Structure formats: structure tokens, C-alpha cells
Computed example of a mutant assay.
Amino acid sequence: MTTVLWLFGPSGVGKSTVGWLVYRTLDRAAYVDTDQLGLCYPESADDPENHRVKSSALGALWPEFEDAPLVVSGGLDTTATARRYTDRLPGADVTLCRLRVNRAELRTRFLGRGWLTDQVDLVLAEADELDRADFGDFTVDTDGRAPAEVAADVRARWID
């Protein structure tokens, strides 16, 4: 059975960075960032986050990951959205890890990117909604922590 670690959280929380670092510690593993799978524009009005495209692409790639750990970074906002993806991963043992950061640090990280700065309030609202929804197998706080430290914590809670 293929084990899958899915890192999710708001934009700017560190999903891609932490996911890549966890992947680099594994033998014979794979890494996928769903943002890369969904670079198809314009989005459909009924699927503004391109989850249909991303989940289809992940499903198409799935047979290539057989018997190797897979690390995925990508936004999930509800258990229904998570199921949209995990239903395309037959036989997978999926662990959902939510990354969280306090609002002030999230604002600083997001604005520090220097692009899409007008969307910072949407990102903060997404973080608040994830706090209310509180789904996933475990949550790791990233406040004031180096990415390598967060990655080690995530890995330890996932497979060590």
C-alpha cells in the first residue's frame, strides 16, 4: 500500500517548502504540488480553485507512484474537497496534515511574496475557516519555526 502525506493550509503557511523538505528525507519517494497540476486558465466558474483539473491530473499520475511514499502539498478547504482527491488514489493510506500559523505571521509571509497582495484578507479568512473546520489527521504549527524543523516534526508524526 502506498502511503500519502498531504500537507494543506492557507497560502503562505509553508506547504510547498515543508512538503519538499519531507520528500527529500525519504527513499524512493515522489512529490507533487497540486498548484502545479492546476495551472489551467481560465478556471471554470463552477470550479474556481481548479480542483476538478488538479484531482484528475493527480488520479492520472497515481499509477506511477505505486509502492513509493508520496508527499502532496495542496490546498484543501473541506473534507469533501479532500475526498475529491483521495477518491482518485485507490489503495492509498492517506494522512492529512494541516499546517497552521498565527494570523500576524501569515499576513507577513503572504505579503512578503510581493504578488497577489490584494488577496491577503482572503487568505486570512481561509485560515480562519480551516480553524473552524478543524479537519485532518493532525496539525503542525509553523509559528516562528524554521522549515526544516517543521518538516522533521511532520515526518515524525507521519511515519517515524
Rank of each mutant, 00 (worst) to 15 (best):
A151I: 01
G112L: 05
L124S: 07
S55R: 12
V71Y: 03
G59Q: 08
A82W: 06
V94G: 04
R107C: 04
M1L: 01
V94W: 03
A45K: 12
D134T: 00
S73P: 08
V18M: 06
P69I: 01
D93C: 08
L76C: 03
R98K: 12
D35E: 10
L7A: 09
V4C: 07
R28Q: 10
R24D: 13
T81A: 12
R103W: 03
T95M: 08
L61V: 06
T81W: 13
T108Y: 12
T25N: 07
V150N: 03
D128G: 12
V4I: 03
H51Q: 15
P63V: 07
L96A: 11
E49C: 14
L130G: 04
D27P: 10
L122A: 13
L26Q: 02
H51G: 13
W62M: 09
V150T: 04
D143F: 07
L111H: 02
F138S: 01
L124I: 13
S55Y: 09
T17F: 03
N50L: 04
L39N: 14
D118W: 14
G9A: 02
R155Y: 05
A57Y: 14
A152W: 02
R100P: 04
F135N: 07
A127L: 10
G14H: 00
R98I: 05
G144N: 11
R88Y: 03
L21M: 11
T142N: 01
A80Q: 12
R155E: 08
L124K: 00
L122D: 14
V72G: 10
